[in-house]
Design a protein around this nucleic acid. Structure first.
Length: 440
RNA sequence: GACCCCUUCGUCUAGCGGUUAGGACACAUCCCUUUCACGGAUGCGACACGAGUUCGAUUCUCGUAGGGGUCGCCA
């Protein structure tokens, strides 16, 4: 039998790392086995669910590359995939329960499910067999007075209707799973295999919630300059260790290595530093064109404009090893795109510190002006010749040129900057530094 | 209060009776270097505690402590 798994979020807010990783593991399970991944929106709580939240969750999943085979925008044989549109199905199932005498009404019209009150064992791939003694809890409400149904009921009905073979979800559901199995049994259906995955905690060990750092996919990752591949990879490492030499693994490798049995049973704390490290790894192996593609919205958001994509790509590529987030790119490359870049305060101080700096810059400009070709090597040679003429080391001249060409004290190689912006701008920038900063 | 899950360096983890307890992130130092980084090297650093089983426990069992979760007409 082909594996069928689902991610069943309730659209009460943004997609969160916990939910994203649950979706991720479900996706991996399906893709690994050639099975089916279903997205089902559990919007039975009319008061708290919003269409915006549902759209946000879909947006986040698309960004992470978690495509679904059945669900909103994808269709499928088991639809509709919004629980708010499945009332007829729930009514029919509720009738089945009534027919076997497992329901009864409260005074206000709410309907409860009569528990079997027998010992129930959950077979879980992560937690093993977990047996719950006959319950002493009150029977659970499954239908509200207004006729709408409660989570436990619709969740089970849909898992039956959609023929789920495995239920991969957060460990916070484990304690309620016996209720679900009780329902499966009442319907005469076979429960799926459960996989309760550990929770993701804040660095201080508390449960991660909406407001916490690194929690919301769109806010903390998409808009913060993460690459989806990096987030995908990092999230996988929280609660699962692939049998592999490296931790840095592609989507394809993770899919091939995925093994639900190997998922851990202990919770993991979120580590932003490590997430950043993963992102830096992915960032630096992007081609110039791909890097620019990802960086584009972050550059334009800072008002940087350009006409030559090749040049812009080379610019961002030249600093790819210096950043761990796309949002850091603009401050590292802005001077490639404009001539009115500011001179940082410490740069001004350093330039003014020694009176001979003006002479050094002028000499560099003169030698550079004589260059007939304009490559990184020719720039380097010209600077070296200028240094030699004044009996100083090239190392004394390079920082000054960096200040003049970028206004900053850090960045890619000076020769790289000069080469990319061209001879004309290089000479003009040196002149500007001489006149504006040194008054020469 | 009851029930469920969990417990190895600061963090993510390897380990599945005998290991100098390994790796990654972070941190520190050094090397490389025109800056910042990258990279390389080294260092720092853990089996929660107590019983038991065993020739021998990080590993198996029980207990304690600690952490997390659940017990809704939320999902």
């Amino acid at each position: 039998m082909s594996i069928r798994v689902r991610f069943a979020p309730s659209p009460t807010g943004d997609l969160h790392v916990g939910g994203a990783r649950t979706a991720l593991f479900n996706w991996l399970m399906a893709r690994k086995s050639g099975g089916t991944f279903i997205l089902r929106v559990e919007d039975t709580d009319g008061a708290r669910n919003t269409a915006e939240a549902a759209a946000g969750i879909i947006k986040g999943m698309r960004w992470l590359g978690l495509d679904w085979d059945e669900g909103p925008e994808a269709g499928g044989d088991c639809g509709p995939y919004f629980q708010s549109q499945r009332k007829d199905i729930y009514d029919a199932y509720f009738k089945k329960l009534e027919d076997v005498g497992r329901t009864y009404a409260e005074a206000d019209g709410a309907m409860r499910f009569k528990f079997s009150r027998t010992a129930i064992t959950v077979h879980d791939l992560v937690c093993g067999d977990v047996t719950f003694a006959p319950t002493e809890e009150p029977d659970m409400t499954i239908r509200r007075p207004d006729g709408s149904y409660i989570f436990h009921f619709v969740n089970v009905v849909d898992d039956i209707e959609m023929r789920m073979t495995h239920v991969i979800r957060g460990e916070d559901h484990l304690s309620n799973t016996w209720k679900h199995i009780d329902l499966f049994n009442a319907f005469g259906a076979t429960p799926p295999t459960y996989v309760h995955i550990p929770l993701i905690l804040n660095p201080d060990g508390t449960k991660m919630s909406k407001r916490d750092e690194g929690s919301a996919i769109e806010h903390s990752y998409m808009n913060a300059g993460f690459l989806p591949a990096a987030v995908f990879n990092y999230l996988c490492m929280l609660g699962w260790t692939p049998k592999s030499e490296s931790e840095k693994l592609s989507r394809e490798e993770l899919t091939a290595l995925f093994d639900a049995d190997a998922i851990h049973s202990s919770n993991a704390k979120f580590d932003l530093k490590k997430a950043l490290w993963f992102n830096a790894q992915y960032l630096r192996e992007l081609s110039p064109a791909d890097l620019l593609q990802h960086a584009r919205p972050f550059l334009t958001a800072k008002g940087l404009i350009w006409t030559d994509d090749t040049l812009a790509a080379a610019a961002v590529h030249s600093v790819r090893e210096k950043v761990s987030l796309l949002t850091e790119l603009p401050e590292w490359v802005h001077y490639f795109f404009r001539e009115d870049y500011p001179f940082e305060a410490d740069v001004v101080t350093k330039l003014k510190a020694k009176p001979e700096n003006a002479g050094l810059l002028k000499a560099a400009a003169e030698h550079l002006a004589q260059s007939t070709e304009w490559t990184e090597q020719s720039v380097h040679d010209a600077v070296e010749a200028a240094a030699k003429a004044l009996s100083v080391k090239p190392g004394a001249m390079m920082p000054l040129l960096r200040f003049a060409l970028s206004g900053q004290s850090r960045g890619p190689g000076v020769t790289t900057i000069a080469h990319l912006i061209g001879k004309e701008k290089t000479l003009a920038r040196i002149q500007r530094a001489l006149s504006e900063v040194l008054g020469a």
